[in-house]
Design a protein around this nucleic acid. Structure first.
Ligand SMILES: NC(=O)c1ccc[n+]([C@@H]2O[C@H](COP(=O)([O-])OP(=O)(O)OC[C@H]3O[C@@H](n4cnc5c(N)ncnc54)[C@H](O)[C@@H]3O)[C@@H](O)[C@H]2O)c1
Ligand SMILES: NC(=O)c1ccc[n+]([C@@H]2O[C@H](COP(=O)([O-])OP(=O)(O)OC[C@H]3O[C@@H](n4cnc5c(N)ncnc54)[C@H](O)[C@@H]3O)[C@@H](O)[C@H]2O)c1
Lengths: 252, 252
DNA sequence: CCGATTTTGTTCTCACGTTCACAAGCTCCT
DNA sequence: AGGAGCTTGTGAACGTGAGAACAAAATCGG
C-alpha cells in the first residue's frame, strides 16, 4: 500500500517545506497580536506575552514559531517588528493579493464596505453581480460590475482569490466559473459544499454552523446530564418501519 | 472543561456523555445535507450518499454518526427524516434559541436581514447598538434598540447566545456586558481575542484570517519551492543586535 | 570573567482525529 | 428457507496536534 512513501525512517518530518495546517491557521492570529503590540510601542515580547495576546498557550506558540526558523533571542524574547515581518513574509502578505467578490447582496455589501482587508494584505479589485439592477452601483470607491466581466478582470488583475457571497443555488456554478477563469483560492459564504478540482483551495465561513455548535454546548450546559435522551434503541430494531413523525411522511 | 476526565481508566471514552469536538463541528453539515436530501424527496441514503453530500469521507461519517447511537440499518442505509431528527435533537435545534446581535453596522445589518437563521433553530430577538442615531431604525420586522436594554432583554427572552459585530475596540467591553447579563455563548466577528470566564463558550469568525490562510497556500502554489526565503539565519546570530529597520526604534 | 537568571527551541509523551478493513446484520432473490 | 449481496458499526493502525519539561543560549550583575 502506502509503504513506498517512507523516505525518512528516523527523523519525524523535518522542517523541510511544510508548516502544519494547525500552525498556519494560527499565524494570522500571531500577526495581529504583534501588530497590536507594535502599535502600543512595545519593541520586544516574550513568548508568554505573545501567547497571552494571541490567546494561546506559550509552549504552543513557541513550537509554532519554531517552524518558521529561530527568530527569537534566548533570555530576551522576540523583537516585535522583526517577527511580525517574518510571519507576514511566511504567510505571503508582504504584498497585496487581488480579490474579487461575487454576489453583492447583504453580505457582499458589508464586505465591500469593510476597510480591514486593505490593511491586511488584500486588495479588492472588483465587485461582481449577475443582477443588472445592481451593476453600476457605487460602493465606496468601487462600482459593481457585471459577472460576465469575470474572466477579463481575473486575467488583467492577476486575481487568485475569489469570495462567493451569492445564494446557495448558484454558488457551485459561480465557483466553476471562478476556477475556469483562473482563480485558485476561494472563500465561500454560501451554505453549500462546493467541489473544486485539485490545486484549488477552498475555505468556508458558515454562520449557521457556528451557531449550531454553540447551541450544542449550550444544551449540554442547561441539561447537564439530564436530557430526555429518548428511547435510544428499542431493544429490537424499529428503525425503518416507524418514522418518528417529525416532519410528516415524506413522499418518494 | 478538563475536569471530570479521569473516571474510566481502561475503556477508551465510551459514548457516555461526550461527542468529540471535531464531530460536533460536522453534525451541522450532516444536518444540512439531510435537509437537502429530504427536500429532494429522498427517503433513504447510504453513508456513501450522505458523505458525498456533506463533502466528507464515508468512514468518517459513519464513525461520527456512531457517537449518536445506532440509527442506520445495515444493508439499507439511513432513513433521512429519522436521522435528521436525531441529529437536530443532539445539536439542540429542535426548538429555537434566542439570539441578540450587538453592533448594527455593515455586518450587523447583513445578519439582521438574513433569513437563514430562523429555519435553522435560531430566533433573533433583538438588534442592539450604542449609537443613538441607529436606535429606532427598522430592519425587516425588527427595530434597533439601545444597548442599555441588554440586561432586560436577556432576562425577558431567556437569551443564551449573543453575536458581537461591533468594532474591535469595544468588543471586550460588550462581551463582558453580555456575560454579566447571563449570555453563555458568544459568536464574535470583531478581530480581537476575547476573554471570557469558564462556562462561557466563544467562537470567532474572522474573515481576514481566512483570507490569510488562503494566501499562505496560494504563495506556495506560485513559488512552489522557489521563494526568496531571505537569509534564514545569518550563521552566527544577528537577531537582537541589528533590528531590520522596519518600524524604526520603538521606545518600548 | 563567571555564575545567576531568563527565555527560547526542542524533545518526549499523551490525547485526539482520521482512515482502513472487516465482522455483524439486514434485505432480497431464488 | 438459505445464500448472495449490501451497508453499517467498530476495532485497530496511523497520523497529527497539544502540552510538559528541560537543555541550550543569551543577558546581566558583580
Ligand atoms: N446575509 C447574511 O448575514 C448571511 C449569513 C449567513 C450566510 N449567508 C449566505 O451568504 C450568501 C449571501 O447572502 P446575502 O444575504 O448577501 O444574499 P443576497 O440575496 O442579499 O445577495 C445575493 C447576491 O448574489 C447575486 N447573485 C445571484 N446569483 C448570482 C450569480 N449567478 N452570479 C453572480 N451574482 C449572483 C444576487 O444578485 C444578489 O445580489 C447566501 O448564500 C447566504 O446563505 C448570509
Ligand atoms: N463589514 C465586514 O465585512 C467585516 C469583515 C470582517 C470583519 N468585520 C468586523 O466586524 C465588526 C463589525 O464590522 P462593521 O463593518 O459592521 O462595522 P461598523 O462600524 O459598520 O459597525 C459597528 C457598529 O457597532 C456599533 N457599536 C460601536 N460600539 C458599540 C458598543 N460599545 N455597543 C454597542 N454597539 C456599538 C456602532 O454604532 C456600529 O453601528 C468589526 O469588528 C469588523 O472588524 C467586518
Amino acid at each position: 500500500m502506502t509503504r513506498a512513501s517512507s523516505r525518512r525512517p528516523g527523523p519525524p518530518t523535518r522542517t523541510e517545506r511544510g508548516i502544519p495546517e494547525a500552525t498556519v491557521a494560527r499565524l494570522p492570529v500571531y500577526l495581529r497580536a504583534l501588530t497590536a503590540l507594535s502599535d502600543s510601542g512595545i519593541a520586544t515580547a516574550s513568548s508568554e506575552d505573545l501567547a497571552t495576546a494571541a490567546g494561546v498557550n506559550s509552549a504552543k506558540l513557541r513550537k509554532d514559531l519554531s517552524y518558521l526558523g529561530s527568530y527569537g533571542t534566548r533570555g530576551v524574547g522576540y523583537d516585535v517588528e522583526y517577527l511580525r515581518y517574518q510571519i507576514a513574509r511566511e504567510i505571503g502578505v508582504t504584498q497585496d493579493w487581488a480579490v474579487v467578490i461575487v454576489g453583492i447582496g447583504n453580505l457582499g455589501h458589508a464586505l465591500a464596505n469593510y476597510s480591514g482587508f486593505g490593511t491586511r494584505g488584500f486588495r479588492i479589485v472588483a465587485l461582481l453581480d449577475a443582477d443588472p439592477a445592481l451593476v453600476g452601483e457605487r460602493i465606496g470607491d468601487m462600482e459593481v460590475r457585471d459577472f460576465a466581466e469575470l474572466e477579463h478582470i481575473v486575467e488583467t488583475d492577476r486575481v487568485s482569490i475569489g469570495v462567493i457571497t451569492t445564494p446557495a443555488g448558484p454558488a457551485q456554478e459561480v465557483c466553476d466559473r471562478l476556477v475556469a477563469a483562473g482563480v485558485t483560492s476561494i472563500l465561500n459564504f454560501a451554505p453549500v459544499v462546493l467541489s473544486v478540482p485539485d490545486g484549488v483551495d477552498i475555505r468556508k465561513v458558515d454562520l449557521s454552523i457556528e451557531l449550531q455548535i454553540l447551541a450544542y454546548h449550550e444544551q449540554r450546559k442547561s441539561g447537564e446530564v439530564a436530557l430526555p435522551q429518548v428511547p435510544e434503541l428499542p431493544a429490537t430494531n424499529g428503525l425503518a418501519p416507524d418514522l418518528p413523525a417529525v416532519g410528516g411522511g415524506v413522499s418518494a
